[in-house]
Design a protein around this nucleic acid. Structure first.
Lengths: 194, 194
DNA sequence: TAAAAATGTTAAACTAAGTTAACGAAATTT
DNA sequence: AAATTTCGTTAACTTAGTTTAACATTTTTA
């Protein structure tokens, strides 16, 4: 079980004792998935909050017309789950699919409250993680409201250069809220200018 | 100091003892603002996280062309602050302005960590509040990606009927990410259909 | 290595939404 | 009550982004 990356990550926020670390390690699950598999499907209940050790996922909403709208990508050192489904144990709005063979550390819903009780530092950790996620989400809303598709693409490219290299372009387009054809156009315009 | 609505709100999430309640009450600030005043301005550091007792605020981003993009409205029983600025004590990205005369309970940044230490239940409370806010924010992103302006308006109208009645229409348009002229068009189309 | 599947490009026709500008209606101020 | 400001509507025109469809390229599979 490769848990070092998670412990290193946690240590950036809070300092766990050896005992606390042991409790945590004994409660979480290490698991590998193959490219194409799903962690959660729309309508299922999301039973785990997951930390990505290696690999890549996309979280997306499939609308009534069958169109995919990508909410986020997760790579190494990121968390992924359908937060709404996980917290309320209600059917998920989103699908989470693996874009590469992926290794995860999974925290089961059943034990998360117990972990908060036994290790209050973890409650602090998750408060801080969610604060950061919320801030990022708010900023994305503003970008979607105030920037053109082209500027959003340039921002994405600068902000997540590693992600852009790992995923097909049509998924970037979906994340940006535009069609693949239009992203293709934007990129050729950009090249023409540079 | 009208603090009852806040205590009632908190009680929906966690149960405070009398002593804990007294500590909280002794640390927070009650304040009234007039319509038009600002709680935070872009570039300032946001020193308070605020609970609305009565009144209404808008949180917006002003872009380089001087256009306003409304992130959210807050009315009774909602929280408002520039989360990024408050948590990191860095310059705010957003403005928060009062749309009505407004009464607030303000939690100063200086004492929030102390409150978390003395009353761990409050850390739990704020974790839960932020989880909810994050979930709502994610869902808004999906709506902006997957729905037309018209559907977004219908959703807003159903979801926040009380807010729509209290604010000018051009602010609804800004929140939806469209121009006031286009919202006007949408509304007349809707009437024609009904 | 050939075939098939997945991804990316281009271009023409189309549509949702923005811009500008002029005019009415409400609400505030004087 | 008149005047000013704020807010909302309508319409002509423009633009950003979509749709469709055909084809090119890359990757995967047989």
């Amino acid at each position: 079980m490769k848990i070092e990356p998670l412990l290193k990550y946690i240590n950036k926020y809070v300092s766990l004792t050896q005992e606390e670390t042991d409790v945590l390690v004994s409660k979480v699950i290490y698991r590998k998935y193959l490219k194409g598999q799903y962690l959660v499907q729309q309508g299922d209940v999301c039973k785990y909050s997951c930390f990505v050790i290696s690999g890549c996922t996309k979280t997306f909403y499939m609308d009534d017309e069958g169109q995919e709208h990508i909410m986020m990508f997760s790579i190494e050192d990121w968390w992924t789950s359908d937060m709404s489904s996980f917290i309320n144990q209600t059917p998920a709005d989103f699908n989470i699919q693996f874009l590469e063979n992926t290794e995860l550390i999974m925290i089961p819903y059943d034990i998360i409250e117990e972990l908060y009780e036994r290790i209050p530092k973890l409650e602090r950790l998750f408060r801080k993680i969610i604060e950061k996620a919320f801030i990022a989400s708010q900023k994305r809303i503003v970008r979607n409201l105030s920037m053109t598709a082209k500027d959003r693409y340039v921002y994405f490219r600068n902000q997540y250069p590693l992600i852009e290299q790992r995923i097909p372009q049509y998924m970037v387009a979906s994340y940006l809220g535009i069609t693949k054809e239009f992203l293709s156009k934007i990129k050729s315009q950009r090249l023409a200018e540079d």
